[in-house]
Design a protein around this nucleic acid. Structure first.
Lengths: 197, 197
DNA sequence: ATTTTATTGTAGCACTCGCTAAACAAATGT
DNA sequence: ACATTTGTTTAGCGAGTGCTACAATAAAAT
């Protein structure tokens, strides 16, 4: 056991409920009062554990990518690019319309825009989205090298298209689109797939 | 001339600068102080002219649809559904990457999520997005009735797919995507067009 | 000239924001 | 027993939030 007084709340549980709040109301829409009340802890305890609101948000984003959004790396592990994208979309819909989570992706809901004081948050999320896009692009580059995708296909624009649909699905989900409706969108989105022509 | 002391600022100009601020920083990220300073007017004048912050936002949204986002009804007036969608995407990119405007669409940037006090704003924007989707759907229904689109095509899912890409483009633009990159996305998005099969 | 009507400027309301200093409490180390 | 370390509690800071009461001002109506 460590030296001083033991912490009276679970760090991971606290981070999970913080994640849910940020996910639902966004960075600016989530107040410290809401956070501390939901976690059941006082403000200084939260600060000594996670730093400040900005750091807490960053850690919540990291946790989001490890747990609820872990479908992305898993999907990209599929043997073919086509199946990877299918699983990617399926995973997105699964997370995006899940009773345990808010509708849509934290990377889109968290802070697409913000006041002058929270611009760093926007940029952080923007980088994360770009990271997801890059991961998809690398998977397509591999698929091209393996002959899985036609050599004439350019990986970067295709990846950008796929994640554009992905972010669009988040907006739709945030607006109340049902799982079936999102599936229909994915069906249309996949009709342009290179192999099918 | 009306009865009392004449207003010393232009209502439309004020609404335009309010629109730009809401557009850039979102509803929650735009403070009354920022609004009044940018417009060059005191708080009570703003309130007597527009009501409160929420009403001002609603009027800014309405103005946005009349001016910067007027490309939507114009695009849907094109003779064929295919050309309508092409013009829709082109108009969206034009607005979304325009030096005069923030990057992306107000309907997505304004308030995708919000704190408990601003949920009405989210719903308002959600309704507006649904309205845009419905307009596209009706255009497709007309196209099907005219034989412009194959009869087996279902208008609603196709419209939902198109606007999903549209909202996705807004997220991409907000993240710094260039005009050329967005055009590449649109190219991919249009490859699934029914006629092309 | 006076009254009426509407906007403007000043000041400040009650409240929330993110955040922190200081005292108290509970564990370990010597 | 005592000091040390660490977390919790209480209380409150300064700044900012949306909003409004009130008096001063500028026009039209009488």
């Amino acid at each position: 056991m460590p030296r001083g007084r033991p912490r009276q709340f679970d760090l991971d549980r606290a981070l999970d409920t913080a994640l849910l709040l940020f996910w639902r109301h966004g960075y600016e829409g989530t107040s410290l009062k809401a956070l501390t009340e939901a976690i059941g802890v006082n403000v200084p305890s939260l600060y000594s554990a996670f730093g400040n609101k900005e750091e807490l948000f960053a850690k919540a984003v990291a946790r989001n990518l490890q747990k609820p959004a872990s479908y992305l790396p898993k999907a990209l592990g599929e043997p073919t690019a086509r199946r990877a994208v299918e699983k990617l979309f399926r995973g997105a819909i699964n997370m995006t319309r899940n009773s345990r989570y808010p509708e849509g992706c934290l990377l889109v809901r968290g802070a697409l825009v913000a006041g002058p004081s929270s611009e760093a948050i926007c940029q952080e999320l923007s980088r994360r989205r770009a990271g997801a896009e890059a991961a998809v692009r690398r998977r397509f580059e591999r698929a091209i090298a393996e002959g899985d995708l036609p050599a004439k296909v350019d990986a970067a624009p295709l990846a950008r298209y796929i994640v554009t649909v992905l972010w669009g699905l988040s907006v739709q989900a945030a607006g109340g689109a049902t799982r079936a409706q999102l599936k229909e969108v994915v069906e249309w989105a996949l009709r342009c797939w290179p192999e099918s022509e």
